[in-house]
Amino acid sequence: MTFKVQNLLVVGFCLFTSVGYGSELFYAPGFCPRDSLKILVQNKSAEPEKWWTQVHENGVIRERYQEIDAKSEMKLAGSAFLPDDRGYSLKSANAGTLKFTALCEDQKVLLGSVTSPQVTHYLPAETTAVKISLLNLYLNSNIITLKAFDTTGELTEEKLILLGKHYETQNLKWIFKRAIARIEVSATARMHSEVFYGDDLKHSPPLVLTPMTLPTDNDKKYFMISTKGPSENGSFVIAMDDEETISIAREQIRNPELEKIVVARIATGVGLGINRNFQSKDKSPYSWTVTHVDSFGDFAHLDCDGSPDLVEERLQQRLSDGGRICFWRYRVVRELSPDEVRSGILKP
């Protein structure tokens, strides 16, 4: 097996490094010391695949570029890319091709892509203690509520956790006064959690039972911005109350051959905001929102191109570069009702 390694300090949006359409991110709180950690990568595809380790610090992503042969596997030591015991992410160039497993001594944890602020972890009925690892995926502080329920559905205990900065990890052991059957985790913004139970620390992954409910305003009109076909790099939602702009957006839906690019300004979302990714499995809200639509253009500058997922991944840099988006492949594809935005469920 052969593979290449390259160190990258990412200071901007580069369309020729890890930026590609159809990529997928996997998340890992720092539940394993770096010196004990190994990443097992398995390539299920019949083609060589590219992937990256990502370490986030103060809005900058430090990446290590990797290649893995077709139908093969490889291991990478945590000490090869982690400066200390912290949370991190892994990125595959093509969604659905690679499987990442964190190996920590005798423990195996299949890493996932869940970013929803509302998840459930199911446990054996007689669980009396767990280890919880939390990872903040929001640029600012994130308040996380943990609720433990017994087999009858009764709330037995509750904890409140504050994660103060982006990619901050917190590991805690929770010993219960009586046996529980599930833990519900809810946060004010995107996050990732892992729960472990038993003496051998078996893994209970986060499950999204229903999309997160978001606040909406019935006086505004909502539109989905996506590629013409299903987007593998996210879709996003804009809210408008200007009649002229709303009329132009509706015209894009009636006449898709107009091929207009949405040029807009963004900021970090206030609370959960209304900007969710309808293309993701968990319909997770983004950490950013469109604050103003500047125009619907025939052309746009290369510097503001990209995708919704890429903006989320590198949000601090995009905001520092002026906070503008103009995704070349994206168009207004549908008008959304407030209920669709609120529930995350699209009507036929």
Score class of each variant (00 low, 15 high):
F223R: 04
L172V: 06
N7E: 11
F16T: 15
V114G: 00
T17L: 06
Q54I: 13
T188C: 04
G164I: 07
Y65A: 12
Q54G: 08
V109K: 09
K131P: 00
K38N: 09
V290H: 00
G20W: 03
G30Y: 13
V19P: 00
H301A: 04
C32K: 01
V55L: 12
L346V: 01
S36A: 11
T101S: 05
A181S: 15
R276D: 09
T245E: 10
F176T: 13
I68Y: 03
V60I: 15
F196H: 11
T151D: 12
E73K: 09
I225P: 01
D242A: 09
E184W: 07
I39H: 05
G234M: 06
R324A: 14
I61A: 05
T210D: 13
L272I: 05
C304L: 07
C304Q: 05
P285T: 05
H121V: 01
L272G: 04
I274F: 15
Y167H: 12
H301D: 15
F299N: 13
V332G: 02
D217P: 02
V114R: 01
V130D: 13
I253M: 06
I61L: 08
K91I: 09
L258K: 14
L214G: 02
K4V: 13
M212V: 14
T213D: 13
K221T: 09
R324E: 15
S72T: 05
L110S: 10
S204H: 03
S113Q: 10
E158G: 08
L9P: 00
A249Y: 02
Y65H: 11
R329L: 15
D294P: 03
K177E: 15
W288N: 02
V208M: 04
S18L: 00
P48C: 02
A239T: 03
S79M: 15
A189M: 14
M191E: 12
R329Q: 11
